[in-house]
Each structure stands twice: as structure tokens, then as C-alpha cells.
Amino acid sequence: MSLAAYVHALGRGPGRSRALTQDEARDAMTQIIAGTAAPEAVGALLMLMRYRGETAPEIAGCAEALRASLPLWPGPPAGLDWPSYAAGRSRGLPWFLLSARLVAMAGVPVLLHGWNGAQSGPASVRGALEIAGIPVAAGMDAAAAQLATTGITYLPLETFAPRALELLRLREVLGLRSAVNTVLRVMNPSRAPAAVQGVFHPPYRALQAEACGLLDLANLTVLKGGGGEFERHPSKAVALFGRRDGAEWSSEAPPLCDETRRLAPEQTGAALDPQDLARLWSGACEDPFATAIVLGTAELALQTAGHAAARPLAESLWARRNDTPPPNRLSH
């Protein structure tokens, strides 16, 4: 089997082309991951899917194929899946990492996983993990062990799905993102029962929610977040999409504060200091706007994980965040 039939279906032209079925997308991605498809056909397929507009069955089928190629998850699933695959443009510091820490403090094991392109510097997710007190796993075994001991870990894409990283980096060759970006957000490697996902482009909120429904995910929240990450802006109403108890769901989170401020620095080239993450956590500095980002994002994540009184819980956790040093304590 080759990809020719699928490229033909996608590219026949106006009025004749069609999207792939979930089964077809699964088979196509299985071939791609196995390396049996011609590279020219891989590029053609991915770009035709982008040109036509990705569909939920295509994303779900590709995610199923990717999951099937992964090593078996070696322990209980995470309580919350938290993908981080944004490029990080137009954002400030990754405050959402502190939100994830609060969720873990609530007893919900959080699996962060991702790859953030060539992003480097103060706003880099990878660069901020150690400062935020989040361990980085060397693979699935290490990630499962860290979830059991610290309740949170970050699993780099290259350590558990190197072929997926190769496909993701085709953007450097093709000049455009592909469906792979979306597939990685919904793949949920540990099969957690709940997930949070950020997008940069609003149409992907409903697309990812529908794809996750086809993948039988029970609970999900998707929002347009800072730099494409799952991070809410506290001074704006935020549209929410997803699932609750296996059913389609949507809502809107009201503004949390009156201060109007961009997540990224107002001044081009303004210095960002990632140590501000640690200072905010330790109480060495106060930043009401950043605190509102952390608490508002944690609230939505806790709701997704099944906590009804999420806001009071987030505030309580924040108030006692330094009472007992966790195994990977934040640097001061």
C-alpha cells in the first residue's frame, strides 16, 4: 500500500476532492511513521490536508496511528494530560507551568509533554522547567516514575516519539505547519482521562474537541491561550471548548481582573527574567497580574480534572504552596 490513493482523494480538485476517513487517516499515518511512504507523498499528503482544512476524523485517525507506534505506558495514566507544542511567539514568561504545579499539589498527576521548536531564551518552556520545579523525564519509564513520586513531569517529544518529531520538523522544509501539530496535542500518550489544550488559531478549538470525542476522551478544555499554550488571559473573557463526562461542552470564563496588559512585554526587546517564576512562587515578589494568570489557568485545569470548587481550591493551594517543600522545590 502507498499514500497515492489518499493523495488522490485529497487533491482531485474543486468539487471532486474529499477528506480522509478516520480509518484512511490511521492507515496513512501508520505508513508515514513506519517510514514506508515516499517522502514526496508524505509532504503532499500533509500539505493537502492543510490546504483543504484538517477534519476531526483525520486528526483522530492520525492520533490513533501515532499512539499505536509508541511504547506502552508503564504505569497508571496521568490524571491530566497537558500538551505543550506551541512555538511561543507573542508571549511572555510561561506562567502556566506554575499552574500545572498547583494542579499536581491537588493530587492530580500532571503529564506535560511537548516540543517548542527552536524557541530559546527567557520565554522558553524548556528553559523554564527547572526554575519552575518541574522534572524532565528521559523517557516513558522515567515519566511514569516521576508522576508517582512528584506528581508532575515534562516528557520531551524526542524521548518517546522521535519519528513524530521528524514529521513535526517538516515545517522547516515545507514552510508551513501541518496536521502533525494538531495530532500531537490530542495524542495523550498516557491515556489520561482528562486533558487541557491550548491553540493559537481559534478554529482549532472546536476541531480538537471533536477529535478528542472520536478518541473517547471524557474530559477536555481547549482555549486560545498565551502563545498557543493552555494559559488564560485574566483580563479577558475566554471562550472554552471541550468535553465533560464524555459529552460535548462549551462555556465562557469571565474576566478575573480589570488590569489590561499583554502577556508579552509591551516594549519590544524588553527583558524577561525566568527567575520571576521562582520569585512569584516563593513570595519574593508580588505581581497581581501574573498571579491571576496562574490561578485562572489552574482553576480551569482543576475543573477539567473534576474538581467542582476549583477556584477556592486553586486559591487555597496557592496560599500554602510553600508550606511543605515538594521533592523538586522551586529555586529562590
Rank of each mutant, 00 (worst) to 15 (best):
A65S: 14
M49S: 09
R244E: 02
L129P: 02
P274F: 09
N188A: 02
L167V: 12
E130P: 00
S84Y: 04
L330A: 07
Q31H: 10
W281S: 02
G61D: 11
A19I: 06
R185C: 02
H307N: 09
G35E: 07
V125S: 09
C285Q: 15
A239P: 04
L217Y: 10
A270G: 12
G242I: 08
G35R: 05
P189M: 05
V173P: 06
L170M: 14
V42M: 03
I293Q: 06
R101E: 04
A239N: 09
P94L: 02
A206F: 06
G114H: 01
P39K: 06
L98M: 06
R329Q: 13
S178M: 03
G296V: 02
L240G: 05
A239M: 06
R171P: 08
G175V: 07
R329M: 03
A118S: 02
T36Q: 12
L48H: 02
L165W: 05
Q119G: 04
A142P: 03
Q22A: 14
T260E: 13
E210R: 08
W73R: 13
A145D: 04
A86T: 00
G114S: 03
G127L: 01
A142Q: 10
P122Q: 13
A305G: 11
R89V: 14
G242R: 12
L217P: 06
A100R: 04
G13P: 12
S2M: 12
A264S: 15
L102E: 01
G296C: 07
D27E: 15
G296D: 07
R177T: 05
L3P: 00
T36I: 13
A142R: 08
L223K: 11
